[in-house]
């Protein structure tokens, strides 16, 4: 399989000596569905956000599609960034605008200066946006204001916007942390289907170990900025989970059927 994303000895230090990412090296291939688990403060968000340089690195290199991204700036960085879609925990839509306008924002990286500034999207893009919304079951909400949607629907718009970018890699920063269990399942199912259909690689930060086990092809366990586990969901046994979270299973609320006790 083709290597899409490569971390080479990546280190990220915040103020002082705390290492949010400590010598992280890994490769992610096309079409993989990777879940990143770990306790709060383990560096999950830093890991995800460093990929498209929302956070500058302290040391090391990140390669996307064979190109380094960590040294890019300005226009070159924007060209790299449009290959990476991000889905946020808090959706981060522009709530005053319509659903389709929010989805079309995904095209801004492809539009030349003035067209992008004035928001003049092509008819082709508009058709594509509607198609994606249909795929996500939002066809009745195309012209609704984003603020009028429910949490689950907002997250679907968030996914649509990211997919609209035509990304090679999709990053999801705790996409279901603000949702109720049933919306969360809908979102994970949709995410999974869309990724599969388009053969996009996907990295998801998750708090729910059972969800990670159910959907991923690969799980990465982070603790204190280090990779403690990197393998298939089957290889993730209870002892490893305890090691990642630094607590006994009886002190963890894992949820679902597998983790329940």
């Amino acid at each position: 399989m083709e290597c899409l994303l490569k971390f080479d000895k990546v280190v990220k230090c915040y103020s002082g000596d705390t290492r949010a990412l400590d010598n992280v090296s890994l490769e992610i291939n096309q079409g993989e569905f990777v879940s990143v688990i770990g306790p709060s403060g383990s560096g999950k968000s830093t890991f995800l956000r460093s990929i498209n340089k929302l956070i500058p690195l302290t040391e090391g290199e990140i390669y996307l599609d064979g190109e380094t991204i960590s040294d890019k700036k300005g226009r070159a960085l924007r060209l790299c960034r449009r290959k990476i879609g991000i889905v946020f925990q808090n959706y981060n839509l522009v709530y005053r605008l319509s659903v389709i306008q929010n989805v079309l924002h995904g095209r801004l990286g492809y539009m030349s200066g003035l067209k992008g500034i004035l928001g003049r999207y092509s008819e082709e893009d508009k058709h594509k946006a509607v198609e994606i919304l249909e795929e996500l079951g939002l066809e009745d909400f195309v012209y609704n204001r984003a603020s009028d949607l429910s949490g689950g629907q907002k997250q679907r718009v968030g996914i649509a916007r990211a997919i609209m970018q035509n990304p090679k890699l999709l990053l999801c920063d705790e996409p279901i942390a603000s949702l109720d269990p049933s919306s969360a399942k809908v979102i994970m199912d949709m995410l999974y289907d869309m990724i599969k259909r388009r053969n996009i690689a996907c990295i998801v930060n998750l708090h729910q170990v059972d969800v990670a086990k159910k959907y991923s092809t690969r799980i990465i366990g982070l603790s204190k900025g280090k990779i403690l586990f990197d393998g298939t969901p089957d290889e993730l046994d209870n002892a490893t989970i305890e090691k990642i979270y630094g607590r006994g299973l009886e002190d963890l609320m894992l949820g679902g059927s597998e983790g329940a006790r």
Binding site: G85, I86, V94, H105, R107, L108, G109, G116, I117
Partner: peptide, 19 residues
């Protein structure tokens, strides 16, 4: 966060501002 969400699509700063 909203600004960030548009920046990560590769949009230019002025586009992010107007959109």
């Amino acid at each position: 966060e909203t600004i960030e969400a548009l920046e990560v699509t590769g949009a230019s700063k002025v586009s992010v501002f107007t959109n």
